[in-house]
Design a protein around this nucleic acid. Structure first.
Lengths: 183, 183
DNA sequence: CTGTATTCTTAATGTACATTAATGCATCCA
DNA sequence: TGGATGCATTAATGTACATTAAGAATACAG
């Protein structure tokens, strides 16, 4: 089964604060603290990092050829976030911190032995997202989002919610106004 | 490691032709033949079936509240197709055969021990799909599709390609016309 | 083969959402 | 403290794609 083996390290090139490093089943894990706005991974990085959020809030997003951001997912406490591009491809996503956060970072997706269960859940979430994007309107996606991710709604700026929903902040404003008038 | 144990069965309620059944790592596998157009799974089914395509072509799709189909994925030879909704939810997808096909059916996602690798690939494919849906135009999605799924393009009607891309057949026609004129 | 149904295409019109632009608000920090 | 900066909202206009409708091509059953 393997176990934990703490190791002390002094620095890394990302200027993150390393509190502790450990080896667990051949995977190097680092506990790091990041500030709001700090970038953790860039599109094109060859190393596929994986972050487990202990506290705070991260997001992953792509940037299209017009320079526009599209949020792929949010990761609050307890979530794992990573760019799961296909192995032969370079990473496509950026990952950064929306709030000051503490994380555990690995270099591969090997957080213990719950992989399969967690991966299945992730596949389910992504399937849902695709179905929503293809078959529902902006207003329906918004209602679904505030219902399922109520906690996150309070913590991120409107423009990021819009970006996650696949619409502009302006369109989100009108969606919200319509909802208010309906009630 | 486990092994194969063939068992003969006589019928099932879906009128599929069962050629062989086997027990592999506690999962019951059935080899079945289906005809073009045959439905294999309906939205709302409580049993989450998994199909491994030996020959032919399957698709999974959702139907929105207006009755419109949205193709979630195609599965040609060698692919595994299933509704991976979250465990607590009922299935959301329909699965049917686009061509006469032979399949191996399981009742859970346990095709041997390569789960993790295959799941990661699936997560990668879905991630890609979401990024495409959010940040590219219909024409770009079409170009990507015919490049990556060249083999499938030849085998499915246009309206299904449109459905996969998230547009109408009419819009796909104009996309194709624009491409022709550009060259 | 022949009629019927289904699919594909083209064109006219409609609509959801994007873009642009202007205004009010909050945050920041020199 | 006050000006700069970024964010949310509103309104006017633009555009990608949907809808509707009709005709042409293809598949399909009797």
């Amino acid at each position: 089964m393997g176990g934990w083996c703490t190791v002390s390290l002094s620095s890394n090139r990302n200027k993150n604060v390393i509190k502790q490093a450990a080896i667990y089943n051949k995977t190097i894990l680092k506990k790091i603290k990041v500030n709001k706005g700090q970038l953790l991974q860039q599109k094109g990085d060859s190393i596929h990092k994986v972050f487990m959020v202990k506290s705070g809030l991260l997001r992953s997003y792509s940037i299209d050829k017009k320079g526009k951001e599209h949020i792929f997912m949010f990761a609050p406490e307890g979530w794992i976030i990573a760019d799961n591009s296909l192995p032969n491809q370079p990473t496509q996503l950026f990952i950064d911190a929306i709030e000051d956060s503490t994380l555990i970072q690995a270099e591969k997706n090997e957080f213990g032995e719950h992989d399969t269960k967690k991966l299945l859940k992730r596949v389910g979430v992504l399937q849902n997202r695709i179905i929503m994007l293809m078959s529902t309107s902006a207003i329906e996606r918004y209602e679904h989002f505030i219902e399922v991710y109520a906690e996150i709604v309070q913590r991120v700026p409107q423009r990021m919610i819009a970006s996650y929903l696949g619409i502009t902040p302006e369109a989100l404003s009108t969606v919200k106004r319509q909802r208010k008038h309906k009630k």
